[in-house]
Amino acid sequence: MQLFYAPDLNEGDAFAILSREESHHAVKVLRMQAGDEMFVTNGRGLGVRGTLSDPSPSGCSVRIEDALEDTQKRGYRIHVAVAPTKVNDRMEWFLEKATEIGVDEITPLICARSERRVFNHARGSKVVLSAAKQSLKYSFPVLNEAEGFKTFLKGISAGKKFIAHCMPEGRRLSLKDGLCPGDDVCILIGPEGDFSPEEVRAAVDCGFVPVTLGTSRLRTETAALFAVAMACTVNM
């Protein structure tokens, strides 16, 4: 099954029109022809089955036959705010794998000790889109623009909130003990040099609970993916 993306698709539409890029892939790469079955999503929870009616490489038209059930729909949200890694490939690896496993929102977080302070949102969005289609998701994760740590804290209010850090001072709850099925969660993951003590205190003052991800010291992208996987596992 190959899933195509049509962001302007709405419930009740008779046709879905694919972008030039999606159309080129369907017609020139996959060699699809008029009458072939196609599956299309708008990335906002709607998936449809249809028939390719106009195989134009500049804008395919798909006649919609049926709306499909979103079997991956969930009653909770997972939001991970993670510092971009120094090596960009590692951040893109996280975006891909977290999307496949099941994350709802990702915010690149610029921290005091961040070695990478610029995030290529356009490139990251392409990674997320590709992974969402590959894993047959009808609801795509939201990838936010990079945001400063203090600014981010001010905008988060709902759900359970956790900050994972490596400093030995103070009590840290195990993340698995803090998660409960059905809860919306926001988890902060710091840069290679960890959060600063000031950032941890600021997060705690905003209601974030300090947590540990275990006894091993993890890379930033590994820690972020572990947090996503743990939150998903609790809800299985």
Score class of each variant (00 low, 15 high):
residue 52 L to W: 01
residue 102 G to P: 01
residue 13 D to M: 10
residue 116 R to V: 09
residue 18 L to I: 05
residue 136 L to S: 08
residue 214 G to N: 12
residue 233 T to M: 15
residue 217 R to K: 15
residue 32 M to R: 03
residue 8 D to L: 08
residue 51 T to L: 13
residue 56 S to F: 07
residue 3 L to K: 00
residue 137 K to D: 02
residue 49 R to Q: 14
residue 187 I to E: 00
residue 23 S to Y: 00
residue 204 V to R: 07
residue 12 G to V: 09
residue 181 P to R: 09
residue 170 G to P: 03
residue 72 Q to V: 05
residue 85 T to D: 06
residue 41 T to A: 02
residue 170 G to D: 12
residue 52 L to K: 01
residue 115 E to S: 10
residue 137 K to C: 01
residue 127 V to M: 08
residue 185 V to E: 04
residue 58 S to R: 15
residue 88 N to Y: 06
residue 184 D to Q: 10
residue 85 T to W: 00
residue 40 V to M: 00
residue 134 Q to D: 09
residue 74 R to M: 12
residue 224 A to M: 09
residue 159 G to C: 08
residue 137 K to H: 12
residue 210 P to V: 10
residue 144 N to W: 08
residue 123 R to A: 05
residue 67 A to S: 14
residue 86 K to T: 13
residue 221 E to N: 11
residue 146 A to G: 06
residue 181 P to C: 07
residue 83 A to W: 04
residue 116 R to M: 11
residue 83 A to G: 13
residue 9 L to N: 00
residue 3 L to N: 02
residue 183 D to H: 08
residue 98 A to E: 06
residue 55 P to S: 07
residue 90 R to S: 04
residue 34 A to I: 03
residue 218 L to K: 10
residue 111 C to Y: 05
residue 168 P to I: 07
residue 187 I to F: 05
residue 164 A to M: 07
residue 194 D to S: 08
residue 205 D to G: 06
residue 186 C to E: 01
residue 48 V to Y: 03
residue 57 P to W: 11
residue 118 V to A: 12
residue 126 K to F: 02
residue 171 R to W: 05
residue 121 H to M: 10
residue 81 A to Q: 08
residue 52 L to Q: 01
residue 157 S to R: 14
residue 90 R to Q: 10
residue 181 P to N: 08
residue 220 T to W: 06
residue 71 T to Y: 05
residue 104 D to K: 05
residue 3 L to Y: 02
residue 5 Y to I: 02
residue 74 R to P: 07
residue 154 K to T: 14
residue 35 G to V: 04
residue 87 V to W: 02
residue 143 L to H: 04
residue 57 P to L: 08
residue 122 A to H: 12
residue 175 L to A: 10
residue 5 Y to A: 01
residue 53 S to L: 08
residue 25 H to M: 00
residue 151 T to M: 09
residue 31 R to Y: 01
residue 162 F to A: 04
residue 24 H to Y: 12
residue 102 G to C: 10
residue 174 S to P: 14
residue 171 R to N: 11
residue 178 G to A: 11
residue 73 K to Y: 06
residue 190 G to V: 12
residue 120 N to S: 13
residue 214 G to I: 09
residue 206 C to E: 15
residue 64 I to V: 13
residue 83 A to S: 15
residue 178 G to K: 11
residue 150 K to Q: 14
residue 221 E to D: 13
residue 1 M to R: 10
residue 210 P to T: 11
residue 134 Q to C: 04
residue 43 G to H: 03
residue 217 R to C: 12
residue 26 A to R: 01
residue 84 P to G: 08
residue 144 N to P: 05
residue 125 S to W: 07
residue 124 G to Q: 08
residue 223 A to Q: 10
residue 100 E to T: 08
residue 190 G to A: 13
residue 161 K to Q: 11
residue 222 T to A: 12
residue 100 E to S: 06
residue 37 E to F: 00
residue 105 E to F: 07
residue 142 V to N: 08
residue 134 Q to V: 06
residue 2 Q to N: 15
residue 103 V to P: 00
residue 25 H to K: 07
residue 31 R to C: 03
residue 73 K to R: 15
residue 143 L to G: 02
residue 135 S to E: 10
residue 67 A to Y: 13
residue 108 P to A: 09
residue 165 H to D: 13
residue 12 G to F: 13
residue 71 T to P: 02
residue 85 T to L: 05
residue 189 I to H: 06
